[in-house]
């Protein structure tokens, strides 16, 4: 409760928005008025009391698909971002702490990974590997972690030369203590900021992959493929594609509102790193 009270007004709104999305994802079968793949009306029906957001190109209820889509989008983008952060941060810190050839090896390998265009790399890998959700998450996580690696290594190199790290070394602390107890707490601010951004990118990347037919497979719903499926309607003035797009935007903004507020707390005078 104390944590929530300390959040700014904007962050509270962000948190509420986030919770609404999260709850609808969890309780999708209870909340959703229709079945996920159930065809309940004509294609592209306008907004009505029966269909709150109208229907999609096949006549499935948009609200229902939006709620079910939240599950996929949330879970896949969230898991991919979390994994990419755990991996990228750890390897980045490890490289900064070990220095020398280990650092060179990891960093140059990372450069090599980054030199492939992300989308093309993902397309090649996903078309070779069996198409399931776990592969999708891992591929997204690995590709994303290259960016996280660069950031966390740069941050850690700065912290690593501080005297309190030297003091820990002189005490005889192990590398893992230095990474998790001395460096990590001081690197949280830039990492949190990056997390908010990368989550948004993950949602968009998933949407792109789905759009190209390599992400979530139809008839399952996710916000990105919903945009794709309904995009043709825009030409006829039908807003069906805009509704999942708005959902993506709202979720991104909510996450960033919360992250910004946490960021401000961690950079405040209390324990700020000057």
């Amino acid at each position: 409760m104390k944590f929530i009270k300390s959040l700014s007004f904007g962050a509270k709104i962000g948190l509420i928005g986030f919770l609404v999305f999260a709850l609808s994802a969890v309780f999708a079968p209870i909340i959703a008025p229709y079945g996920e793949t159930e065809i309940v009306g004509e294609g592209w029906e306008p907004v009505s009391a029966q269909f709150l957001f109208g229907t999609d190109q096949l006549g499935r209820d948009l609200l229902t698909r939006l709620i079910y889509g939240a599950r996929n989008t949330f879970f896949i983008a969230g898991a991919a971002t979390v994994i990419s952060f755990c991996m990228g941060t750890f390897l980045g810190f490890f490289a900064a702490v070990m220095k020398g050839w280990i650092d060179q090896l990891l960093s140059r390998f990372n450069d090599m990974m980054m030199s492939f265009p992300t989308l093309i790399f993902a397309l090649v890998v996903l078309s070779v590997l069996p198409a399931n959700i776990i592969t999708l998450i891992l591929v997204m996580a690995v590709l994303d972690s290259t960016r996280v690696y660069r950031l966390s290594r740069a941050v850690a190199v700065d912290i690593e030369v501080m005297e309190f790290v030297e003091a820990a070394r002189l005490r005889g602390e192990k590398q893992m203590w230095v990474i998790f107890r001395e460096i990590l707490p001081n690197a949280l601010s830039p990492l949190f900021a990056e997390f908010g951004l990368r989550f948004a990118f993950a949602v968009l990347f998933l949407a792109t992959l789905s759009f190209l037919g390599l992400g979530i497979q139809p008839p399952e719903a996710d916000w990105g493929s919903m945009v794709k499926e309904n995009k043709d309607g825009i030409v006829f003035g039908i807003p069906a594609a805009l509704i999942p797009a708005a959902a993506i935007a709202t979720l991104t903004i909510c996450v960033n509102l919360v992250v910004d507020s946490i960021l401000q707390r961690t950079t405040s005078l209390k324990g700020g790193r000057g």
């Binding site: 501080m162 005297e163 309190f164 003091a167 001081n186 790193r273 000057g274």
Partner: peptide
Amino acid sequence: LRSLQMIYQMADTAMNPR
């Protein structure tokens, strides 16, 4: 390591602010 300790000039940077 225990019996040889060090105190630094800048106490600010010698302590982990977190």
